[in-house]
């Protein structure tokens, strides 16, 4: 009995091993689950299903997380690309606008048939109200630019060269009270001299002493007269804003809005004229009674 007690565990282990093999052998013989297997499956089945459900849920959650992370990274990348593309788009738009302006300048160059110098606007002198008083262009002595030469754009005449500073030059705008240009006003082509109105905060010019032989109304075109041969006749200068004719006066006083947008002009053409032409133009202006131009005649070096 004592011997049996000593070997009880070993005997029990041996019986368990034998029972396992007997189960296997019986299952192989039977070919179908026993009642014990079916009873155990009542416990095991739901557990196994729960395990698989947890696994699938975790897998789905992980997949969603990975996808979300991927989407986040992708969104960041795309945002960066959008920024780059937007910058490129703006650059291309500006280049296209510049190309359009240059094309128009080229067209003007061919149209006027004169010796011209293209130039970029590199500076704008403004007053306290941010109103442009004067512009500087990137053309100077090397290009043969001299004071008094007319400056034009595809929209029309902008002004004349005021002074040359080496590689740049200042432009006396049409709206400057010191400027003067021979023009034709309205359908009746009444002649006159246009000068800057000098009104604070407004880009306007005036033409004094315009004949009242033909009626002039707001919206009438103002073009170059072509006198003295500096500029071809018919280049746009501006549009009549108002034409005042006091009963006791024989002339209209016409206010003109320049055709060129002074505040935003970026490229211009300088019309190269001979000094003799400019002297002739001055003489014509003097004979016409217009104010003498105060454009500087010096070249600053």
């Amino acid at each position: 009995m004592e011997t049996l007690a000593r070997y009880r565990d070993r005997i029990a282990f041996a019986l368990l091993l034998a029972a396992s093999l007997a189960l296997l052998w019986a299952d192989a013989r039977r070919g179908a689950p026993s009642w014990m297997d079916r009873a155990a499956m009542v416990v095991v089945g739901p557990l196994a299903r729960a395990g698989v459900a947890v696994r699938d849920g975790a897998g789905s959650l992980w997949g969603s997380y990975v996808a979300l992370r991927g989407a986040h990274e992708e969104a960041k990348e795309l945002r960066a690309r959008v920024d780059v593309l937007e910058a490129e788009r703006i650059k291309l738009k500006l280049a296209a606008e510049e190309a359009d302006r240059l094309r128009a300048l080229l067209g003007l160059r061919e149209h006027v048939g004169l010796d011209v110098v293209p130039a970029r606007v590199v500076g704008r002198e403004r007053n306290g109200a941010w109103h442009v008083l004067k512009i500087s262009i990137a053309a100077g002595e090397a290009e043969g630019v001299e004071p008094g030469m007319p400056v034009v754009t595809p929209d029309g005449v902008a002004g004349t060269i005021a002074a040359v500073y080496g590689s740049t030059a200042d432009v006396l705008l049409l709206t400057d009270p010191d400027s003067a240009l021979d023009v034709l006003v309205g359908k009746g082509r009444a002649g006159g001299t246009l000068r800057g109105a000098g009104i604070e905060g407004e880009y306007l010019a005036v033409v004094d002493y315009v004949s009242r032989a033909e009626p002039i109304t707001a919206g009438d075109l103002v073009v170059t007269s072509g006198l003295a041969g500096i500029l071809p006749k018919g280049l746009a200068v501006g549009k009549v804003v108002r034409a005042e004719a006091p009963p006791d006066k024989l002339f209209y006083q016409v206010t003109v809005a320049p055709a060129v947008d002074i505040a935003t002009v970026e490229e211009v053409l300088v019309v190269k004229t001979a000094p003799s032409d400019r002297a002739l133009a001055e003489a014509v202006r003097s004979a016409g009674g217009g104010p003498a131009p105060k454009a500087p005649t010096r070249v600053l070096k």
């Binding site: 368990l16 091993l17 029972a19 396992s20 093999l21 007997a22 189960l23 296997l24 052998w25 019986a26 299952d27 192989a28 026993s34 297997d37 155990a40 499956m41 416990v43 095991v44 196994a48």
Partner: peptide, 17 residues
């Protein structure tokens, strides 16, 4: 071991053994 066989769908007994 027995339950492991049932989980695996294997003939019960081998895992227990």
């Amino acid at each position: 071991g027995y339950l492991g066989d049932l989980y695996a769908g294997a003939p019960p007994g081998a895992g227990a053994f």
